[in-house]
């Protein structure tokens, strides 16, 4: 065992890449849940984003146009969910699960002619000056555009939820839709927008998998990332920065345990494989316990259908 064989700069850089799909999808779901809707279809929206992004990316030769297509595809699929639960008032849990199954199936169908095709070239953006700092430069300043965008999204969503009136309205709809309704806010419209935003973010997260992280299309390639994103939202107590930390811990331990294995560390590997999940849960539980005791941040109307009374 020789720790010096691990390249920690590369390790941090790869943990950021590994976590980015989770960050993106989970941020979208956070907004959806803050509006009082539980969409369990994240996995389905991610995979549809992955396949649509890959197809468009290959056809246009641009990974970034592919990412736009991924967002559109995720949003389109979420429209279906929005219609079913907001207009038809169907059960959110069942509809979300159905969305996942539907997404996985249709993605496999769409992607069939695209297995075994090379993905378009991607360029990383080295931030001038900063990227030349030894170690730190490799870690943080030589990534693709999407990584930077994911960090900006965390900041933006935090600002939106805590500092903007629109964010307050969104949260009030999620806390108590009847009160929000009686105050004159359009509960259905706001939830509709939140769901579509969540779909687009999940789509982008999926597109990042197929266009940047792996990068290729294979059936079932999300392999449960959508479920981890869902769990992150809950464990982070619906807070964007904790969500980011949680995602990075998850990605970090995942990459670290691979590195430890490769240098031949004598630790039970089943424990190592379990470590990302344990560490993420533990870390987020500890954060939530120490401050803001009692305030878990769960929206009051999460998962409940809104029936217009008047």
């Amino acid at each position: 065992m020789d720790l010096s064989e691990i390249n920690f700069a590369v390790l941090v850089a790869s943990l950021i890449v590994a976590s980015t799909p989770l960050v993106l999808a989970a941020l979208g779901e956070l907004i959806v849940e803050k509006s009082g809707v539980l969409n369990l279809g994240v996995e389905g929206m991610m995979i549809i984003g992955a396949v649509a992004g890959f197809i468009v990316g290959v056809e246009t030769g641009s990974a970034y146009i592919g990412m736009i297509a991924a967002a559109v595809a995720g949003a389109l699929l979420s429209l279906l969910f929005a219609f079913i639960i907001l207009i038809m008032q169907a059960n959110q849990v069942a509809s979300g699960l159905a969305l996942t199954i539907f997404g996985l199936g249709i993605a496999a169908l769409m992607g069939h002619p695209y297995t075994g095709i090379k993905s378009p070239q991607i360029s990383t953006i080295s931030i001038p000056i900063l990227s030349e700092i030894p170690i730190l430069g490799t870690m943080f300043f030589q990534h693709d555009l999407i990584v930077y965008l994911s960090l900006i999204s965390v900041l933006t969503i935090w600002y939106f939820l805590t500092r903007m009136r629109a964010g307050l309205i969104l949260r009030s709809v999620g806390e108590d839709h009847d009160v929000a309704h009686s105050l004159g806010y359009r509960v259905i419209t706001i939830r509709f927008l939140a769901i579509v935003f969540g779909g687009a973010m999940a789509g982008v997260g999926g597109g990042y998998l197929s266009l940047f992280r792996v990068p290729q299309w294979t059936e079932g390639m999300t392999a449960g990332a959508g479920w981890i994103a869902l769990a992150l939202v809950v464990f982070s107590g619906w807070r964007p920065f904790r969500l980011l930390i949680g995602a990075y811990i998850f990605g970090g331990i995942t990459i670290l345990q691979l590195n430890l294995q490769a240098i031949g560390v004598n630790i039970n590997i089943a424990v190592l494989s379990m470590a990302p999940y344990l560490a993420t849960i533990l870390a987020l539980v500890v954060i939530s316990m120490s401050r803001f005791r009692g305030n878990r941040g769960a929206p009051g109307c999460l998962g409940r259908s809104f029936v217009k009374t008047i």
């Binding site: 064989e5 995942t254 691979l258 590195n259 294995q261 490769a262 240098i263």
Partner: peptide
């Protein structure tokens, strides 16, 4: 030989991570 066990037969993202790790270690 450097061996990484990933405890799955099929997970493209995990497989890619393992390969990247091995490459980063030479």
């Amino acid at each position: 030989f450097k061996v990484i066990w990933i405890f799955t037969w099929y997970d493209p993202a995990k497989e890619a991570d393992a390969a990247k790790t091995l490459i980063s270690q030479g």
